[in-house]
Write a protein that binds this DNA or RNA. Sequence first.
RNA 1: GUCCCAGUAGCUCAGCUGGAUAGAGCAACAGCCUUCUAAGCUGUGGGUCGCAGGUUCGAAUCCUGCCUGGGACGCCA
Length: 574
Amino acid sequence: MRRGDFLYLKEVIYMEKHVLALQLSHILGEKFPREWIYDHIETPKLEKMGDLAFPCFKLSPSLRKPPQELANELALQLKHDLFESVQPVSGYINIFLNKKFTTEHTLKQILTERENFGKHQFGKGKTVVLDLSAPNIAKPFSMGHLRSTVIGNAIANLAEHCGYETIKINYIGDYGTQFGKLLAAYKKWGDEQRIQSNPIAELTKIYVRFHEESKNHPQLIEEGRLWFKKLEHQDEEALRLWKWFKDASLEEFDKIYHLLGVTFDLTRGEAYYNDKMEATVDLLKKRHLLKASDGAQVVRLDEQGLPPCLIKKSDGTTIYATRDLTAAIDRYQSYSFDEALYVVGHEQSLHFQQIKHVLNKLELPWADSIKHISFGMMLQNGSKMSTRRGKTILLEQVLEEAIHKAKVNIEEKNPKLTNKNDAARQVGVGAVIFHDLKHDRRNDVEFSLNDMLTFEGNTAPYLQYAYVRARSLLQKGDFDEQHADPHLEEEITWPLVKQLKAFPHVVEQSYMNYDPSKTAKYLLELARTFNQFYTHSKIIGGSDQQAKLTLVFSFTIVIKEGLQLLGIEAPEEM
RNA sequence: GUCCCAGUAGCUCAGCUGGAUAGAGCAACAGCCUUCUAAGCUGUGGGUCGCAGGUUCGAAUCCUGCCUGGGACGCCA
């Protein structure tokens, strides 16, 4: 769905926008359908330019009048109870909404719908499968996995808000030739005790060592290959070690997921597909898609202008593309998804293009519902991080530091707080998650611990703090929902009302673009608007107390819901 | 070499489905707590929107070329 698609907008998010489009199309006639007008309605960037605007430049050529003149004429004809005033300004028609009506309507809606405010129905009956997080066993949970995890989780939340069923799949990297290397390394230098007590760190250590030493001792590579063969042939020892590494790794990952508050509907390793890939290969053969090339089996993608997709290596073994194809087919059979989103780094975009094209060649009708939700990489000093070079930064340490810093802040700013640890966890973890989500997911981000541990400005703590202040007001003012009053009189409340009103639209746009950062940016503006209201208006003991508290209450509903969408908790006090 | 992504304030980034005076945060400077949590608010300074063309009434936004950085380009995932 795109902006202005009327089929979906039954719930009328922007009532006044529709009224304006309808009126204008009435005045202008058939030549300018209301959908077209709707699409060209803008939100002015300055408060003094009103709440809605329509630029008349596009009308000029066919009506043969200068836009200024058109704006003047049209402004005179536009009349509606929703509009307070209509003003022509240098080719634009600027519309000021009826504040009293809009405020009352918006607040009533939030009060009635509560946490359902912002939800949509257009995804009803449809299923979205998300592939997210996907850490590799025996490797640390890196900042890159954090991106996939929090972005995927937020998109899943947004999808649910739009009515979709979601299936979150954690596709664990538990297979591949690197495990042969790891097994070989373990046989050489592994220390059972140390691995028991600190599995990922120890396994990473020997894995890195393996890579270093293999530079001078190439025969190590051969040993690795041998161990992988053993693993493939279900060698008892290889299998036992592999399972041990896997279980120990998953246990450590669970700690992180618990901290992040992320859950999955299915956690499944790549190895699960080991005995299912031959069926995929057969299918490709049957369709005559498999071609021999340098001893390997590939699907050629020349018409697509892409390099061939490798299905079987020259030694006859399968490869990740085979696995991903098999997994996709399996997922469709299990869930009949309407969309399958792969939240995976940008570096794999060629791979996913190939997968999609191969599925298309198999004439699977759902091939196009596969979407690679790519994101930029975490860079360090301008280049990619690498486990092999031991350069990865551990998420767990970052989270711990963030929580610690939040605790220190609380001790200093609110020493009387009773549940300091909970608040510190919510604030610290929230800061880390938000730091990631506020950026456009496609851009690379330079890792900066400093930025992640900043609690001022455009951060989660800023949002949480606004929420906490609002909650505190409601408590001090003894706010009672039963006596909510949506009749605000003062002009100062208007910007906040407008922000709150926009929330459903933001949720929709955020999901349609698979872009949680849209929600993140909205929440920052919302909180800023609230903080401005907070400092410039006396709420408790001022005029209009009950109505202002009603506005504050509405704010708490929206910001809490928004944070929840991003996977961030809102503490009651901090 | 081919393909993909990015280049906006000192730094991190918005804005990029074309529109009015290019916006935030951080950093710097100047203010605001006897009053609702100062993790806040207010103000000041700071920009050839990588470069050059083109399309348009109008371009940071769309098109082309170039420069710079990053990534990907079969037997890793």
